[in-house]
Computed example of a mutant assay.
Amino acid sequence: MQKTTKERLLETGLTLLLRHGYNDLGVHSILEATGVPKGSFYHHFRSKEDFALQVIDSYMAEVHGGLDASLGDRTLPPLDRVRRFFELTREKYRHEGYLGCMLGGLGQELAGVNETFQSKIETCFSQMADRIAACFEEAREDGSLSPQADPLTLAELVLNCWEGAALRSRLRRERSPLDSMLDFYFSSVAATTA
């Protein structure tokens, strides 16, 4: 099925925002990459900011799809389901050339200067943390985590660690920071219940 003009713009926007960031990406570059006329762009988006915010929504739809696939896989124990989400994300990063997390990149670039993006990106991370925390709660209930463990704190910590590893992976253009982070985090979490 052929993609709509808006879908093509959003898909291209995701790639370009990952590569260039927000400030270095002009509308002209988006139009050039998609072959879409300027009028069509402004038919779908009020501004470059509106476009980037909708790209974030599109990105989050992918993230939630990954969370659904991983956290919803009841054939795996809860901790393995959380780890699986990050392993699938690592594979996505590999296909993109280890450019990292779009939320992390935009957050670093814009959070200090644009409250709209700061709020949007923090909301996205909070949604992810809530979903991961629910899986950690299952792990606490089945004894895989200590009864004293705080699932939301653990979820926020794994996201924070992941974002740091994603930045290092982007700098190096390879996966070892992601692998090391996952191994360290999940062996540390498992050790607290032993």
Rank of each mutant, 00 (worst) to 15 (best):
Ser70Pro: 03
Glu91Cys: 10
Asp68Tyr: 08
Asp57His: 03
Pro77Phe: 11
Ser119His: 15
Glu87Ala: 04
Phe86Trp: 12
Thr75Asn: 11
Thr116Trp: 10
Tyr98Gly: 10
Val113Met: 10
Gly105Trp: 06
Leu99Ile: 03
Leu76Lys: 15
Val113Tyr: 08
Val113Thr: 14
Leu106Phe: 07
Leu88His: 15
Leu71Ala: 11
Cys101Leu: 10
Lys92Gly: 11
Gly104Gln: 09
Leu71Tyr: 02
Asp68Val: 01
Leu76Gln: 15
Glu96Lys: 14
Arg83Pro: 10
Leu99Asp: 07
Gly66Arg: 06
Ser58Val: 00
Leu53Ala: 02
Val55Arg: 00
Glu96Ala: 14
Phe117Leu: 02
Lys120Met: 04
Glu115Met: 11
Ala69Cys: 10
Gly66Phe: 07
Leu106Thr: 01
Ser70Asn: 02
Met60Lys: 00
Tyr98Trp: 15
Ala52Cys: 12
Val55Glu: 00
Val82His: 09
Thr75Val: 09
Tyr93Val: 01
Ser70Cys: 07
Asn114Lys: 13
His95Ile: 00
Phe85Gly: 05
Leu110Gly: 02
His95Trp: 14
Lys120Ser: 10
Leu99Val: 06
Leu99Arg: 12
Thr123Pro: 10
Gly66Leu: 13
Gly107Ser: 10
Glu62Ala: 05
Val63Gln: 06
Tyr59Ala: 03
Gln108Ala: 14
Arg90Tyr: 12
Tyr59Ile: 00
Leu76Thr: 09
Arg94Thr: 04
Gly112Met: 06
Gln54Ala: 08
Glu62Leu: 09
Gly105Cys: 05
Ser119Met: 09
Gly97Lys: 05
Asp68Pro: 06
Thr123Glu: 15
Gly65Ile: 01
Gly105Tyr: 07
Glu87Leu: 11
Gly65Arg: 05
Gly65Thr: 00
Cys124Ala: 15
Lys120Asn: 10
His64Thr: 08
Leu103Gln: 10
Leu67Phe: 08
Ile121Met: 02
Leu53Tyr: 04
Gly65Met: 01
Ser70Ile: 04
Asp57Phe: 02
Tyr98Asn: 11
Met102Arg: 06
Leu71Lys: 07
Gly112Leu: 01
Gln118Glu: 12
Glu122His: 06
Leu67Thr: 00
Tyr93Arg: 07
Tyr93Gly: 05
Arg74Tyr: 05
Thr116Ala: 14
Gly100Gln: 13
Gln118Cys: 07
Ala52Thr: 07
Lys92Val: 11
Pro77Glu: 15
Leu71Cys: 12
Ser70Arg: 00
Tyr98Gln: 13
Arg74Cys: 07
His64Arg: 14
Tyr93Glu: 12
Asp57Pro: 01
Phe86Ala: 03
Tyr59Cys: 08
Ile56Ala: 05
Ala69Gln: 12
Gly97Trp: 09
Arg81Gly: 10
Phe86His: 11
Cys101Pro: 05
Tyr98Phe: 15
Phe85Tyr: 14
Val63Asp: 06
Leu67Ser: 04
Arg84Met: 14
Thr89Leu: 14
Asp68Ala: 04
Asn114Ala: 13
Ala61Arg: 03
Thr89Ser: 13
Pro77Leu: 15
Arg81Ser: 12
Gln118Asn: 08
Leu79Val: 09
Thr116Cys: 09
Phe117Gln: 03
Val55Ala: 12
Pro78Ser: 05
Leu71Val: 08
Glu122Met: 07
Phe86Met: 09
Leu79Asp: 11
Leu67Ile: 06
Leu106Asn: 00
Ala61Thr: 04
Arg83Ile: 05
Cys101Asn: 11
Gly100Trp: 14
Ile56Trp: 02
Ser70Tyr: 03
Gly107Lys: 05
Ala52Tyr: 07
